[in-house]
Amino acid sequence: MSKQKLPILESEYNIRPARILKVRQLTLTEKLYEIGFPNGESLNHDPGQFVEVSIFGVGEAPISLASSPTRRGSFDLCVRNVGKVTAALHQLKAGDSIGIRGPFGRGFPVQEFVGNDLLIVAGGIGLVPLRSLIHYVLDNRREFGKVTILLGCRTPQNILFSDEIETWSSRLDLSFSCTVDKADPEWKGNVGVIASLIPGITLSRHTYAVVVGPPVMYRYVIAELLLKKIPAHRIILSLERHMKCGLGKCGHCQINNLYCCQDGPVFRYEQLRDLEEAFPR
C-alpha cells in the first residue's frame, strides 16, 4: 500500500464557515467585525474566550472575543493590523467569508463574580476581551455589586469604542475613568499611566480586579492592587500568547507548565505569581 490521504470528519482543525456581517474602523489600526454563522447559530462562548480566525491561503490567528454571549446570533472581533492574517482580515468587507475554530480556553469566572464588586482595568487593546465582560455585566447588571472601569491608552487617538465609552461614563450604575500616556490639546481627562488611577479609588473587601493590557502593564497594576489588599486569587488576568492550535499541543502559548490556550487565557494572579514566563522580565 502506498501513501494515502483519507478524510477525517471530526478533525479539530475543521473550521466553521462564517460571514462578516459588519465592519467598523475604530482607529487607524483597529477594526471591529461583527461575525455570524450562515444559519444564525450563536457561538455560545464565555466572556474572555478566544477563537482561531481562518482565512484560507493566509492562515489562522487567535483573536479575542469582543462581545458578550448574551447577544445571540452574532459575535464581535476587534482586530489590530499587525501580522499576516490580520492584514488579510483588514482587506475584507461585509459579506466576505472567513472561518472560525473555537471558542477556546477559559474565560472570566463570571459566576464567581456574582454578588461581588468588580474593578475592571483595561490597558490599550486589552479593552477588547474586557468588552465581552463589560457587556455581559451590563446585560446582567443586577447580579453584580459596584462596577468600576479604568481605561488607559497611549494617546486619545488610540481609544477603542469611544462611542460606547461615552455611554459607560454617563451611566449611573458604573463608574468609569480614563487616562492617556500622552495627551493632545483637545484632551481634558487624566494624563499618566493606568496604575496611577488605582490609589485614588475606594474598594470594598469583596472586590474582584480584572486586568487585561499589554505585557508591560501587569507588574505595575498588580503592585497597586496588592497595596489595595486585593488577594491574589481575586486578581484575574488575561494573557496574550500566540496560540497556534488552540488545543494544548503546538507549544507556542506555553507559560511554564500552563497552556494559555487551554488553561487560560484567563488566569488568577495566584496561578501566575511564581511563574517565570508569565510577565516580561
Binding site: 478524510p7 477525517i8 473550521i15
Partner: peptide, 14 residues
C-alpha cells in the same frame, strides 16, 4: 475557494 469555502480535513498515512 472557487465556489464558496470548500474544505476537507484529511490525514496522510501509509
Amino acid at each position: 475557494l472557487h465556489e464558496g469555502q470548500k474544505m476537507q480535513a484529511v490525514v496522510e498515512l501509509e
